[in-house]
Simulated scan of single mutants.
Amino acid sequence: MVENIDNLLKLAYGFSISKILFTAVSFDVFTKLSGTEKTAAQLSQELSLPERSFSRLLNSCTALGLLNKKDGRYSNTPLSEEYLVEGKPFYFGYHINALNSRLYGPWGTLEEIIKKDEFQPSVEGKSDDIIKAVSSTKEFARKAMMSQHNYSQLIAIDFAETIDLTGRKSFLDIGGGTGIFTAETAKRFPHIEYTIFDRGFVLEVAKDILKEHKVEDKVKLCEGDILNDPFPEGSDVALLSGVLDGYDEAICRDMIKKIYDYLPKGGLFYITESVINDERSGPVFPSIFSLILLLQTEKGDARSRGEMEEWLRDAGFKVVKYEVMSKRSGAYRNSGLITAVKE
């Protein structure tokens, strides 16, 4: 809630805070400072940047709590060391770089996008929306999927620690992307079989992630289009993570019905999304995400608990429970998990 002029000023200057972070990550500032401390002169020389302007960026990062500064020497804060150093397990830089290259510019034209009320191509000069663009080239698929991987890593850990697959035989990750949800789940429930179903360029990225997590021998990769191709046979658990927000209601309903028809009686179905409230007035991140989807997809939108549960019931599912996952991934994204069963 905006209660005073300070809150209003923070909102008004939010764009500058984002760009400070984006620029520092783009320059590899935090990676250069990993495990050490350096002066502005040392860093500017390493990065071939002018010290006068670069030192102002470093001071702004310090003011924002991204860097420490003592006796003229800069070092990473614990947050930056964990999430902004390339090569660290939870490095978030791929996602930050994607926000900078794919969203920051188009976001500045939001007035025109809203006036036109139509999808605005904003994916590195491509005319497709983000979903179609991922299938266009191997190079773009990797860049887009690593951004999504960063976004999903901690949510995937929360997911694996929340669900119960006791007595289940086979898990199908539909539109599974980099496979991080499958990887984390396979580590916690190694007794069952796993399959990721997605497009070919995307599965190439998933191979690397599964190998990194040492679960590549537990997971089958099956190429296909989640809307038009039949699902691989045999699973009694299905996951749809961050997929429904890319499509309109009619396609979402068709997809859920397709999954209902696929699963055996008693089959489990999990949906995860950044969930907006039923009035579509909050929380903050899902509301922002709704606008991002206006820029990047033809018909996508943030999804509410009420509409998803309605679609599930109309397809024949029994909704078992809804919960928000936040232990590792935090509360800001309002990452909701719906558990449903085919009776």
Rank of each mutant, 00 (worst) to 15 (best):
S80C: 09
A186V: 01
F27W: 08
V319N: 02
T339M: 13
Q42L: 10
C61D: 08
V2Y: 03
K70Y: 08
E343M: 03
G234S: 03
L203P: 15
K169W: 00
P78A: 05
K169E: 05
D117R: 12
S53N: 11
F22G: 01
F285C: 09
K10F: 09
L293E: 03
S335W: 12
P50A: 11
R313M: 08
N228C: 05
Q45G: 01
S170W: 00
R328S: 05
I209F: 13
P286Q: 13
R188C: 04
K32R: 15
I17H: 14
F90K: 07
K169H: 05
I163E: 10
C252W: 03
Y262L: 06
S304L: 11
L103G: 01
I256A: 13
Q296W: 01
A340G: 13
G330Y: 14
G176L: 04
N4F: 06
L21H: 04
N97T: 01
L240E: 07
S127P: 15
T39W: 02
Q120P: 01
K116T: 11
D173P: 05
L103S: 07
D229Q: 04
F119G: 14
M145N: 10
R280C: 09
E216H: 08
Y104I: 02
G176R: 13
E310M: 08
A24K: 02
I226K: 08
A238Y: 05
S80M: 10
K214W: 09
S326Y: 13
E279K: 12
A98H: 04
S147G: 02
R305V: 12
H191P: 00
R56G: 01
P190F: 04
L165W: 04
I5M: 08
K169D: 05
F181D: 01
I192Y: 00
E223N: 03
G108Y: 02
E118M: 15
S127L: 03
D245V: 15
K126L: 15
T339H: 11
S326L: 11
E81V: 08
P286F: 14
E273A: 11
N68W: 03
D198H: 09
F171D: 02
N4W: 09
P232H: 02
K321H: 06
I155Q: 14
L244N: 15
T23I: 03
E46V: 07
L239H: 01
G282H: 08
D229I: 14
A250H: 06
M146T: 10
E184F: 06
D248K: 10
D248H: 08
K327A: 15
E193Y: 02
I174L: 12
V202L: 06
E51R: 12
L58P: 00
P190C: 06
Y104M: 05
W311F: 10
L33P: 02
T185Q: 06
R305N: 06
L210T: 02
M145S: 07
G234M: 04
K10L: 12
I155T: 10
L11T: 03
K211T: 00
G300Y: 05
S136V: 14
N4C: 13
L64H: 09
G177V: 09
K32Q: 13
R303G: 10
T339A: 14
F189Q: 05
K299G: 06
